[in-house]
Design a binder for these strands. Structure first.
Length: 286
RNA sequence: GCCGGGAUAGCUCAGGUAGUAGAGCGCCAGACUGAAAAUCUGGGCGUGGGGAGUGCAAGUCUCUCUCCCGGCA
């Protein structure tokens, strides 16, 4: 059976470096599993691997998508599957590297409702929430699919809307699309490596990384995007809004930096929560 | 030096008529069914600046000291 290496861990834990080392040693190719590194034009802001490293080792799913395009776990899963199989066919070792736990789950974890996000439907429900509150949406979901409703908190508008969207598009209960064993992950012998640091060290690394981003002139990178149309997904890149507000004179650079550092630390914490519960990871303390 | 205004959770601050304290943010923990770097949930005993006084009882009233911020000199 073919081997698939998966490297997980919070942001700034050193995943890319480890991946590069492994790839050199075992003729591997790297596939990024990162919701934001897919975008073109933001290599500094999203910490994409350096061009020189990408030249030495083939990297995939990095910096290929224009910022006005939406992206999703679904699309990631599709693309990653074909890239990984292609690598394996060429007798190289695919090395999946990333911090987007949900994307990893979409790829390895199994089935999901085959329903694309529909902006019109979502807009409709967003308006409903504003008018009648999320309790109304929750009751509506409970009426059609109590099983799914039970797993969603009434305040979690995001998931409520998604569940109702699935129902509206397919006419079937969202809970029918239950998780199943993924056919894809069965094709490989998966070896998961997790990177871990003491919390204090990780936070220091994050703070330093943000400072380095500034030194590498991330401000210039972001300035070019000021007047561009950005997709819903791309708008959520950490640091984008903060640097925009600096560029528009609404905050100082100092404030923006502190803010970005904090958001990144909070993100890293959530990533740790996600991966901590994941089974079969060999944890490496760096 | 004088006149005001402050000093309460890590930070910013709320706290009629005195009855041992809350909110936002942070922080910690958790969830996560194809927009996830998102979204959501749970967690607050803190020598109430120091000292003295009045009261059954003081963050809350009185006095005093220390420090901070305005204004006037």
């Amino acid at each position: 059976m073919k081997k698939l290496i998966v490297i997980v861990g919070p942001t700034a834990s050193g995943k890319s470096r480890l991946a590069l080392r492994l790839a050199k040693r075992c003729k591997g190719e790297i596939i990024s599993c990162d919701a934001m590194q897919v975008y073109r034009g933001v290599p500094i802001l999203t910490n994409q691997p350096l061009p020189e490293d990408q030249k030495k080792i083939p990297h995939h799913l990095i910096g290929f998508l224009p910022l006005h395009k939406e992206f999703s776990a679904a699309e990631f899963s599709q693309r990653a599957k074909s890239v990984i199989q292609d690598i394996a066919r060429r007798r190289k070792v695919p090395i999946l590297v990333g911090g987007s736990g949900f994307y990893l789950k979409a790829l390895l974890g199994g089935k999901h409702a085959p329903v694309k996000a529909d902006p019109t439907i979502r807009k409709k429900y967003s308006r409903l929430v504003k008018e009648k509150g999320n309790a109304y949406l929750y009751e509506r979901l409970r009426a059609i699919d109590p099983r799914r409703a039970k797993k969603i908190h009434p305040n979690d508008t995001y998931r409520l809307i998604r569940a109702l969207e699935i129902y509206e598009v397919t006419g079937r209960k969202p809970s029918e699309f239950a998780e199943g064993g993924g056919g894809f992950s069965a094709l490989f012998r998966i070896q998961k490596i997790g990177l871990r640091h003491p919390r204090k060290v990780l936070y220091q690394r994050i703070d330093r990384r943000v400072e380095k981003m500034i030194r590498n002139d991330v401000v210039a990178e972001v300035k070019r995007l000021l007047r561009k149309r950005l997709s819903f997904t791309a708008k959520r890149i950490i640091g984008l809004q903060e640097l925009f507000s600096y560029l528009k004179g609404e905050s100082s650079l100092e404030e923006a930096i502190t803010h970005i550092q904090r958001l990144t630390r909070q993100y890293a914490k959530r990533q740790e929560t996600w991966f901590r519960k994941e089974k079969g990871i060999r944890w490496v303390r760096v």
